[in-house]
Amino acid sequence: MAQKIVIKVQMAGDKCRSKAMALVAATCGVVSVQLAGDDKSQVVVVGDVDSIKLTNALRRKVGPAQLVEVGDAKKEEEKKTKDEKKDEPVPIYYPGYYYGYPNLHHHTGYYGCPCGCNPRPDSICTIM
């Protein structure tokens, strides 16, 4: 079952952020990784991962880390999909009308098609 884990990590710069992202992404069972927060100090992990082991690994490799939130990832996705469905406009379908005549262009009458795709049939007259 996929979990949503939020871990706050003290990261000094971009090098620490990329190191934390690489460490979390390399962990087995991770589906997605994002940076969140105003100063991009929170790592949001979605997947089937042990949150305590992941937090301890970030403490060892990156710096001080604190486990903020552990929750179910599906609840967040369901809420988002319900909200998105409400925002979509509902299409209005009007009954259609057929304004053309089928196959008028490619007719095979005595004179043939005007575009030349079906030439005029050969004349019955044997003199010409």
Rank of each mutant, 00 (worst) to 15 (best):
H106I: 06
K74D: 07
D38N: 07
A57Q: 10
G112T: 12
G47E: 04
V31I: 06
M1L: 10
V90K: 14
A25Y: 02
A65N: 02
A22Y: 02
L35W: 01
D83P: 00
L54C: 01
G96S: 11
P121A: 08
S18P: 00
Q42W: 00
C115M: 07
K19Y: 06
R120L: 07
D48W: 04
S18M: 10
A25H: 05
P95L: 08
G29N: 09
R59L: 03
L54G: 00
P95M: 08
E88Q: 13
K75E: 13
Q42K: 08
H106S: 07
H107S: 15
K40S: 09
D72A: 12
C28I: 11
A2P: 08
H107R: 15
G109P: 12
G116C: 09
S41I: 03
S123A: 12
S41M: 04
D48L: 10
P64G: 04
S18V: 10
V31E: 13
V9M: 04
R60K: 14
E69F: 11
G47S: 11
L54Q: 01
S51L: 03
K79Y: 11
A2R: 08
G63P: 01
G63C: 05
P114V: 07
K4W: 05
E78M: 10
N118Q: 11
V68T: 14
D38W: 02
A12Y: 03
Q34D: 12
D39A: 13
Q34K: 10
R60C: 04
D39P: 01
V70M: 13
G63Y: 01
D87N: 08
L54V: 06
G100M: 13
P64Y: 06
A73V: 00
D38K: 02
Q66N: 11
Y101S: 13
R17Q: 12
E84N: 07
D122Q: 08
A2C: 03
V33W: 05
A22L: 08
S123R: 10
Y101I: 11
V45K: 01
H106W: 13
G109K: 15
Y97N: 11
Q42E: 15
R120S: 08
M21T: 09
A25Q: 12
G71K: 07
I5S: 00
S51H: 14
P119K: 08
E69M: 07
L104V: 09
H106G: 05
D122G: 10
V62Y: 00
G63R: 06
Q10W: 04
G47K: 06
R60S: 13
H105M: 15
V62M: 09
Y98T: 04
V90M: 15
P121T: 04
M1E: 05
E77A: 14
S41A: 09
L23K: 02
L104I: 03
A26N: 14
K4M: 14
T126C: 04
K40T: 05
K40I: 03
G47T: 01
A20H: 00
E76T: 02
R60T: 15
D83W: 11
K85A: 14
P119T: 11
P102Y: 15
G29S: 07
E76W: 03
L67A: 02
L104S: 13
Q34S: 13
A36Y: 00
N103G: 14
G29M: 08
Q10R: 10
G63H: 04
E69R: 02
I7C: 01
Y101L: 11
V43N: 00
